[in-house]
Amino acid sequence: MTSMETDVASSSRVVIPGESLFPSAEDLRPGKGTYELHGHIYSSLLGYVYVREDTTDSRNIRVIEVRRNEERHQHVSPHIGAIVTAKVINIGPRYAKCQLLSVEDTILGGDYTALLRKEDIRSTERDKIEISECVLPGDILLARVISFGDTVTSFLISTAEEQLGVVMATGETGEKMMTKDWNTVQGVETGRVETRKIAKVPNLNLHSTTKAK
């Protein structure tokens, strides 16, 4: 989404929560691990200070982040609108139960499950959807969090967008499946064809087919 972002300064400055990092400014934005209060940007984590350049709107904005280690943040709970990576655990007549693996580019620390309801699988011909023709247990999905659910159910996710859906499939026999076209996958070993709701991620699918050859 913000493809124009680049890591610029990764300082070795260690901060503890509550430390004032910078005074608020027009071109400074509090990123992950920080918050803004009373005209200052404060750290909310123990970690190193990073300054990232963000030129998305052709304006130079510096994003302040605090990270515990270099690679990634931990402990982000899913929020509405987030793209999540989910693994299908089981399917039923009305919904597929999924385990959330990561939120955007962050691997989740805790265990979170989500429901993919039948009518949220695709945006066209919703009444004709059969879950088993779209996802099967073991598949890895890209999906969007659409709701926190009601008081008894868990998060609800949706794949009703072109670029969302199955990115890695496991066949009924357990073999690895490669995408054949936009609706079907083919077994690597047996050549069996199964149907899926494939995520139309051009780069990702291209990458996986070249790798298989």
Binding site: I16, P17, G18, G33, Y42, L45, L46, H75, G109
Partner: peptide, 11 residues
């Protein structure tokens, strides 16, 4: 809580 990496306001 801080060691767990949970975001807090302060120590």
């Amino acid at each position: 809580i801080i060691d767990a990496g949970i975001e807090v306001l302060d120590v």
